[in-house]
């Protein structure tokens, strides 16, 4: 089988420009034309190159603030990168504690909007709609606005949409913390059966168990730099050392 790239990144970097005084109104900008703004540059991701193949499950390790989330957002196409280029082959979906859902919309509308954003046709969503609601255990609240949901309910709905509709490339940022034990078991089962097979997954987790179990390759990040990319055991070792 020929190797097909899901994501190809070349020399990507990202620096955040954080201004410390509020120069975000026209008035402030006009009055402070000659006063240089106090601002800092925070390099979050420094010059990385790598590629991810279709169907791979990649782990992402690193301590807090090492640029994991920024990297994930760059790869998912949410942030534009400052330099280099990223080629993304397919639709992407980023999941952390919630996926893109509007609190003004009902569960039903959110399912349709998210499904459509992920590239499904309305008919396809019609077909899986019932499964999504059943999986999320929200049958009684289909037409309730999700602003009235508990945070667990929102997270379950988000997870169910991701499970059933899923994009070609999934970025999962600490997702196994959703719901009660029963839901977690269900989630892991689905994760194993439908995502590990057939989808490209990038997994961010602080749980070594999860990373060790699912990832063929793992990247280790430190201070915005890609220190290591390859064998999972080696990456975990480096990460453990870093935590000492």
């Amino acid at each position: 089988m020929e190797k097909e790239f899901a994501i190809e990144a070349k020399n990507i970097s990202k620096t955040f420009h954080i201004s410390e005084d509020s120069h975000n109104t026209v008035k402030n900008r006009l009055f402070n034309i000659f006063k240089p703004s106090r601002s800092r540059y925070v390099p979050a991701v420094k010059n990385m190159s790598f590629e991810i193949l279709k169907g791979e499950c990649i782990g992402l390790l690193g301590r807090n603030g090492c640029g994991k989330s920024t990297l994930v957002k760059l790869l998912a196409g949410v942030y534009p990168s400052d330099s280099g280029q990223i080629r993304i082959n397919g639709s992407t979906m980023l999941m952390n504690l919630g996926v893109g859902m509007s609190h003004e919309l009902t569960a039903r509308e959110n399912v349709y909007v998210s499904g459509s954003v992920l590239g499904l046709r309305i008919k396809e969503i019609d077909a899986i709609f019932k499964e999504i609601i059943e999986f999320a255990e929200l049958e009684e609240f289909v037409d309730t606005k999700i602003k009235f949901f508990s945070s667990g309910m929102v997270a379950r709905l988000a997870f169910s949409i991701a499970v059933k509709a899923g994009a070609d490339i999934m970025f999962l940022d600490e997702i196994f913390a959703v719901g009660d034990v029963k839901f977690q078991d269900k989630a892991i089962k689905v994760f194993e059966s439908s995502w590990i097979e057939g989808k490209t997954v990038i997994l961010v987790s602080h749980s070594m168990e999860v990373i060790r179990q699912y990832c063929n390759r793992t990247a280790f990040l430190k201070h915005g730099e890609l220190v290591f990319y390859g064998d999972t055991e080696k990456a975990i070792e480096l990460y453990m050392e870093d935590n000492q």
Binding site: G77, V78, I88, M93, L94, V117
Partner: peptide, 8 residues
């Protein structure tokens, strides 16, 4: 919420 989590 529409563009924060995907490349829409």
């Amino acid at each position: 919420y529409l563009y924060e989590y995907s490349n829409m």
